[in-house]
Amino acid sequence: MAIVLIRTLLIYALLLVTMRLLGKRQLGEMELSEFVVAAVIADLAALPLQDIGIPMMNAVVPIVTLFCCEILIAGISMKSLRLRTLLFGRPSILISQGKILQSELRRNRFTLDELLQELRSQGIDDIRKVKTAILETDGRLNVLLSASAEPVSPELLGIDVPEKGYPIVVINDGRTLSANLRHSGHDARWLEKQLKSHGLQSAEQVFLMTVNAFDEIYLAKKEGQP
């Protein structure tokens, strides 16, 4: 029991470090090889936890080896376009100017049903509206609509809309995020003043407070606060 507990904690720590160092990409954005490596690492990690007769080294060595290979391949493929193409393939155009490129569809083993399903999921019901549909190397289908089918934007209408900037969280569940506060160009005195103007004594009474580049504030009090 104690051995399983200790092994679990050690493997968990190793996985945390490995996954953290492998990068921030989410599962859905992984390349096929990255997904396979992640799945193999998960399987390897489970082995010594299920059977205490298997030395932990039998999991640690392959996990560390795969991690090193992944880091090296990622680093080299960042520099070499040829290697990147070899390992991850290249994006394929499946629809061009409203016309399905059937040979590309076959080459990528992408069925017509899958293509239509992807288009429907993006709210596109008419293939003629599609200027280009690109199957990315991570399996996602990105669709660019023809100019006439694109949604109306302020730019198209010639309307000048001022940028609002990104709202920065300065209080998160009662805690003041000092770095964010500094990043927003304000200090503790400013924050205190803002809280007082909302009838609050301290940051602990605030659930969420954000401020954007125009000093527009969003403030949500904690439930139960007057």
């Binding site: 160092l21 560390v64 080896t65 991690f67 090193c68 290979c69 880091i71 090296l72 680093g75 080299i76």
Partner: peptide, 10 residues
């Protein structure tokens, strides 16, 4: 640096 560390570890 990360790649070199991975190579050294390997």
């Amino acid at each position: 640096k990360r790649e070199l560390a991975a190579l050294a570890l390997l």
